[in-house]
Design a protein around this nucleic acid. Structure first.
Lengths: 303, 303
DNA sequence: CTGTTAGCGCGTTCAA
DNA sequence: TTGAACGCGCTAACAG
């Protein structure tokens, strides 16, 4: 940095201010210094800067579900553009995850935390907040909103007997009832988030006395399993049964299943906006981009 | 650190040495210091450490294809365990990518670079190597090896007329011929790496005078497109045409397409091993975990 | 608006 | 085996 300062005929402090966009430098000086720095291929040394300044120019990104590549990419791009480094932490298996929250290797290392589809427990959230930096969480599921869209779509098509397959453990009877559907306990099913899980769900449905005219699945894999198993059983989709997925854009798009899709890349960017606002002490404006229903071939009018 | 030193009744230098596992400290002292540090919840400040010591304890991970979540997760886990921070860079669209290589924001920030399925151009590779830290690349495709497996499988099933659909631009006539297949220019097709691309490929194949008895696709999406389009056209899979994909574990597994699968998580870990070896100045032993063929319902004996 | 001074928290000599 | 002193490259507070 002192080399640049000498070359530009100013002091190191001025170079520092100019390069960081700090006020207190004339526009002319800033432009000149910036140009000299670029010519000399100089960039501020991050760790010296952090050490002296206190700010770290780094955000910890906790990723729960690594398959949400778009969410991660969106967040990374936005952070990079804002001049922040991205420290990635993949919170995978429970033991590794537990160790992470125990050691909290983020202390004094980042200016903020972004939790992407990690579904923090209250204890984990508290631990993060103990870090004393802004924490922003992006839930894996806007399940309620997605469910509303799916229910609306199916009701519009004349369906009333709809089974709901979830992979989590919350109740969603309200959304179903509010949309005008019949709520039956035997039509609320749990499944592992896999294609095989979806296939098993169909077996259960077929065993019951009545088949629903539509199935909503919270997972794309499960929706695909339901789709394949119904077909194999000679049922027409959507002739006999309609299918709507609440997630799994790639899979459902490939196979042609009607699905609710979140704009994950945009959600990542939005989360960064919120985080950066907090860092500036402001309040973020606006909510995340809404989920949207993409109608494909797996849903049709009730026959 | 000085607090810990005082509490332990030693100097800061000793604490530093003890905590980093440097030689020159008695085992007893080290144990005691380590314990005091843990009790005080003290951890070495990374940026001060880098500033003073030169090592950065951070690895830049460049991710080209964010859908390769397992590769990324494997690398992240291995790096974390080795005590390195992971600085994530998603190399997405061409303009952003070009800017990255132009500015190379890694200078003096990382101890090494891991390029995961980014498919570096020679110029990009040279730029990275100019950083003067070890660079390890994990190719997106072990296409040749995968192709050999796929060809062997099909030949064993009696196929000789096999179309190859690629999304890249290399030639693979050798592998086809070496396996004993007939090589026909009109059966080597290019496709965009999408389901729609695969569907279009089938249209082209159907236009020709002869249909191959099997199709190999370098992409899972394309394989799915081929599968769906063939079915829609009334062709049986694998009755009329067998399909083997060289990638796309998730998709192909879901739909039941025979595919070559790489153990991506393990490959990520292996790449880290190689990188860490280089950092120690050693030579890494062993190659990456091999790809394997998973036979499913889309490939069968030639009829 | 700009320069000067004094650390930030550690690792690394060098002596003891 | 341990401790003291110095400096890594930068930013913050102050003075001009």
């Amino acid at each position: 940095m002192s080399d640049v300062a000498r070359a530009a005929g100013v002091s190191a402090a001025t170079v520092s201010r100019a390069l960081r966009g700090e006020p207190g430098v004339s526009e002319a000086t800033r432009r000149y210094v910036t140009e000299v720095a670029k010519r000399m291929r100089y960039a501020i040394a991050r760790d010296a800067s952090s050490l002296a300044g206190g700010r770290r120019y780094a955000i910890a990104v906790l990723a729960g579900d690594v398959r949400r590549g778009d969410l991660l990419a969106g967040a990374e791009g936005a952070l990079r553009q804002a001049g922040y480094d991205v420290l990635l932490y993949v919170l995978g298996e429970p033991p590794a995850r537990a160790r992470f929250f125990e050691e909290l290797p983020l202390a004094r290392r980042v200016d903020g935390v972004l939790a992407l589809s990690v579904d923090l427990t209250p204890a984990e959230g508290a631990a993060l907040r103990g870090l004393d930096v802004p924490v922003v969480e992006v839930g894996d599921d806007d399940l309620r909103e997605a469910l509303r869209l799916a229910v609306g779509h199916l009701v519009e098509l004349g369906h009333r007997d709809v089974a709901l397959v979830v992979t989590g453990d919350e109740s969603h009877d309200e959304e179903l009832a509010a949309g005008g559907l019949r709520v039956r306990p035997e039509w609320t099913l749990w499944s592992s988030p896999t294609v095989a899980g979806g296939e098993q769900v169909v077996d259960v449905l077929l065993d019951a006395e009545r088949l629903p005219t539509a199935v909503i699945s919270s997972s794309g894999e499960v929706a695909l399993g339901v789709f394949l198993r119904l077909r194999r059983d000679g049922r027409a989709v959507p002739g006999d049964v309609s299918i709507v997925s609440l997630d799994g854009a790639e899979l459902t798009r490939a196979v042609g299943i009607t699905a609710v899709e979140g704009a994950w890349r945009e959600r990542g960017e939005h989360a960064v906006d919120v985080l950066l606002s907090r860092l500036r002490g402001e309040d973020a404006a606006g909510g995340p981009p809404p989920v949207r229903l993409v109608v494909r071939d797996s849903s049709g009018r009730r026959v």
